[in-house]
Write a protein that binds this DNA or RNA. Structure first.
Length: 298
DNA sequence: ATGCCTGAAGGGTTCAGA
């Protein structure tokens, strides 16, 4: 005993979830908070202006000891951070990021438990080569600049609207010519990760079939035909504390789900120095791919 | 060839989503 005793850092659970409307998702969101007990939650597609968010769910969150950082707008988009491990230095949006044409509510940052947390809803892109697509790439470049200028202990969570590799879609052939999988989008994501951010779910499940989004249509979830586009990207000091990381598929089941599932990471105290090689989880049996048409946009 | 499903706004339908 004596001087130099390490201060115990409590386990911290951080989650990200594109809820596709807080208003419509309340019957799923509140029970999920009670069951999973996350300490920090990044939300996307809240679809609420900030005052409407507070009116709708402020009391319910306060009762659960969450404070909130909000960056929303009516109808579309909207992001938030819920925290019960502190929440300070809130920044709405990404400085210098383009709009379409006006800035959209797609990012909010706050410091929670000594970690810089960024909740992002990356633009969809719609069609490769379109104005929306160029907007997506430019917005990602601005996000990268903001993260690069930020503190070392950082975690970027949210709906990236990019599947990092072909292993992150149920069938690469089904996505030929579509957004979310094109080389420029993947390059933009890779440049963000090149700041030193680790994809904590893929790191923990390197050979698994892991998706976070399934189209509502055509029984895609039932057949597990999805994409992994919701990511938790952690800088090395944070990634080294990850004890577990997974997609909460239970939240995609049942009545009235979002089309996205939450992604959750549990952080533990960092041991001194290197934690050594991480033992990969056992591989699942290879799932035979079926040829399936994507639901088509109009 | 088209809709499939869901949410929002507005108005009896259309747009957006990925």
């Amino acid at each position: 005993m004596g001087v130099g005793v390490a201060v115990a850092v409590e386990l911290m659970r951080i989650a990200t979830w594109n809820v596709n409307s807080v208003k419509q998702r309340l019957p799923r969101l509140l029970p999920w908070l009670d069951e999973r007990q996350p300490d920090v939650v990044c939300l996307q597609e809240t679809k609420l202006a900030d005052d409407a968010f507070v009116d709708l769910v402020g009391d319910e969150l306060a009762n659960r000891r969450y404070t909130v950082a909000l960056h929303g707008e009516a109808t579309w988009n909207g992001v938030a951070i819920l925290s019960r491990v502190g929440l300070s230095d809130v920044v709405a949006g990404v400085p210098g990021a383009p709009g379409f044409p006006h800035p959209e509510a797609r990012a909010v940052s706050a410091t929670c438990g000594e970690i810089r947390v960024v909740s992002v809803y990356v633009p969809n892109g719609r069609t490769p080569g379109s104005e929306h697509y160029r907007y997506k790439l430019a917005w990602l470049a601005s996000l990268r600049e903001m993260v690069a200028a930020g503190p070392q202990a950082t975690i970027v969570c949210g709906d990236m609207n990019i599947a990092p590799t072909d292993d992150d879609v149920f069938d690469p052939d089904a996505y030929v010519g579509q957004t979310h999988v094109t080389p420029p989008e993947r390059a933009a994501l890779a440049e963000l990760q090149a700041l030193g951010l680790h994809d904590v779910v893929r790191d923990r499940w390197p050979n698994e079939r892991v998706f976070s989004y399934w189209d509502y249509r055509a029984g895609m979830f039932h057949q597990d035909l999805g994409m992994r586009i919701d990511l938790i990207l952690a800088s090395t000091p944070v990634a080294s504390r990850v004890r577990a990381a997974w997609v909460d598929r239970q939240a995609r089941k049942g009545r009235g789900p979002s089309d996205h599932a939450p992604v959750i990471a549990d952080l533990d105290e960092a041991p001194d120095g290197d934690i050594g090689p991480v033992v990969p989880p056992p591989s699942a049996p290879v799932t035979k791919r079926r040829s399936v048409k994507l639901p088509q946009s109009r």
